[in-house]
Amino acid sequence: MIKQLESTKKPAIIYPDSDGEPMSDNTKQFRWIVTIKENLELLYANNPDVFVAGDLLWYPVEGDNKRRQAPDTMVVFNRPKGDRGSYKQWEENNIPPQVVFEILSPGNRLKKMALKFKFYETYGVEEYYIYDPDDNEFIGYLRSGQHLEIIEEINGWVSPRLNIRFELPDDTLEIYRPDGQKFLSFVEIGQLREQERQEKENALSELEQQRRRNELLEAKLREFGIDPKQL
Results as ranks from 00 to 15, higher is better:
Ser86Met: 06
Tyr87Leu: 03
Lys88His: 09
Lys88Ile: 09
Lys88Met: 11
Gln89Cys: 06
Gln89Glu: 14
Trp90Pro: 03
Glu91Leu: 15
Asn94Glu: 12
Gln98Lys: 12
Glu102Lys: 12
Ile103Phe: 14
Leu104Trp: 07
Ser105Met: 10
Ser105Arg: 11
Gly107Phe: 03
Gly107Arg: 12
Leu110Ser: 13
Lys111Ser: 07
Lys112Met: 07
Lys112Phe: 07
Lys112Gly: 10
Met113Val: 10
Met113Lys: 14
Lys116Phe: 05
Lys118Met: 08
Lys118Gln: 15
Thr122Phe: 03
Tyr123His: 12
Tyr123Ser: 04
Val125Ile: 15
Val125Met: 06
Glu126Gly: 03
Glu127Asn: 10
Ile130His: 07
Ile130Thr: 06
Ile130Pro: 05
Ile130Cys: 02
Tyr131Leu: 03
Tyr131Val: 05
Asp132His: 09
Pro133Glu: 07
Asp134Phe: 14
Asn136Gly: 05
Glu137Gln: 15
Phe138Trp: 10
Ile139Asp: 09
Gly140Asp: 09
Tyr141Asp: 04
Arg143Pro: 01
Arg143Ala: 06
Arg143Phe: 04
Gly145Ala: 07
Gln146Arg: 10
His147Pro: 01
Leu148Ser: 00
Leu148Lys: 10
Ile150Gly: 02
Ile151Ser: 02
Ile151Glu: 07
Ile154Phe: 11
Asn155Ile: 02
Gly156His: 10
Gly156Phe: 13
Trp157Gly: 02
Trp157Met: 00
Val158Asp: 04
Val158Arg: 12
Val158Ala: 09
Asn163Val: 11
Asn163Asp: 13
Arg165Ile: 01
Phe166Arg: 10
Pro169Thr: 11
Asp170Asn: 13
Asp170Gly: 01
Thr172Met: 12
Leu173Met: 10
Leu173Asp: 03
Glu174Ser: 09
Ile175Glu: 00
Arg177Pro: 03
Lys182Pro: 01
Lys182Gln: 15
Lys182Ser: 03
Phe183Ile: 09
Leu184His: 01
Ser185Asn: 08
Val187Ser: 11
Val187Lys: 13
Val187Glu: 10
Glu188Asn: 02
Ile189Met: 04
Ile189Glu: 12
Ile189Trp: 10
Gly190Met: 12
Gly190Arg: 14
Gln191Cys: 02
Gln191Glu: 13
Leu192Cys: 02
Glu194Gly: 04
Glu194Asn: 10
Glu194Met: 08
Gln195Ser: 06
Glu196Met: 01
Glu196Cys: 00
Arg197Trp: 08
Arg197Val: 01
Glu199Asp: 05
Lys200Met: 05
Ala203Trp: 01
Ala203Gln: 07
Ala203Asp: 01
Ser205Trp: 00
Ser205Ile: 03
Glu208Leu: 11
Gln210Trp: 03
Gln210Lys: 14
Arg211Val: 08
Arg211Trp: 04
Arg211Glu: 11
Arg211Met: 05
Arg212Ala: 08
Asn214Arg: 00
Asn214Lys: 06
Glu215Asn: 04
Glu215Ala: 02
Glu215Thr: 00
Leu216Glu: 15
Leu216Asn: 10
Leu216His: 12
Leu217Ser: 08
Glu218Thr: 01
Glu218Val: 02
Glu218Leu: 01
Ala219Ser: 11
Ala219Asn: 12
